[in-house]
Amino acid sequence: MEFNSLALDLDEIESKYPENPLDFFRNKKLCLFKACLEKYFPGVRWGIHDLLEELNLDISVCENQSCCSGTFFQRNLITRAQFAAINERNLSELNQQADVVLFSCNGCYNSLLRGRDFLKNPDVKRKTQEILSRLKAKSSGKNYPGKYEILDNPKLKLVHDLDLLYLIRNDVLNTLKFDLKKLKVAVHYGCHYLNLSRDKKTADAYLRDKTKLDELVLLFGGKPVEYQEKEACCGWGASQIVIHPKEALKITYNKLKSAENVDADFMLMPCPTCLYTLSKPEYREKINKYYKEKLDIPTIHINELIAILRGCEEERCITLRRKTPRLDEIYSIITQD
């Protein structure tokens, strides 16, 4: 296994801070990576932001960060070197202001590690530096040393929100006002969390079943349920849902149906792209049209759930998501005294 040194070493934190891993993050600057699809689900951002603020951590966003551009790379609209250059530009800006960057989106997290992995290829690295040097020559904005260089040894570390939440789960639990009232939860990890090798040190860590989201559900007083399509894709499939909608929606349908078959009360996931796919009313309507079945299982991102459980105002947790089926029901059940 080739561990990407940009990934936060969770095992090391657990061994160095066995009493309370949260201590590692004290006096560190944390930055939330802005995932594009958070626009539709602001609670994904506020959920983690408000929690970390309550835990007295130093939290910010980086205004100079662009989209991770993974979607363009995956659709062959930019080369590996261009993708890596966009990535290095973002990493340089983030490295200026943060020690640890947090990701609410599987895709963004994978992209930033992947862009860095591409630099292991000498040809891609040379081309990437050529692009960055061209930027330097044309630079017109604020500059700082090393801005247009490939970072040799960045202090910056990257971590997925789910991994962080799990690491500091006991502190998270202490902030909660409500519990999950034994609701049945169908957990969905998402492909780029389940199948990611870049942040794993051992083959075992890469291959074994992932359980962190299930464990959090249990800890928060819910019941994680097993369902046939648990490890299946949400249907987004690197924009397959846009390009081959009818076919890709079959995957979405199978997933939702499989969760409904075991009477799950809602689906929980750690990625706004999966959330978008599994909850978009237009997709649900198309599923109804193509497969003659109305599926109304609610869908929630782990950050939104934390916000609900912490007793955040409804508007801040799940605003703009009024059309998501039966979400208000779940909100009412959890927040009833």
């Binding site: 802005k34 594009c36 699809l37 958070e38 626009k39 539709y40 602001p42 951002r45 966003v61 205004e63 100079n64 960060q65 662009s66 989209c67 979607t71 609209l77 930019i78 080369t79 261009q82 250059a85 966009i86 530009r89 692009i131 061209r134 930027l135 044309k138 630079s139 017109s140 904005g141």
Partner: peptide
């Protein structure tokens, strides 16, 4: 960005120019 507007501020113009420069000939 790829979705209309993000939560928060827009990227400064000189950085949008940089993205365009990176994507030359792509």
């Amino acid at each position: 960005v790829v979705v209309e507007e993000q939560l928060g501020n827009k990227l400064p113009q000189e950085m949008i120019d940089e993205l365009n420069e990176i994507c030359n000939f792509a």
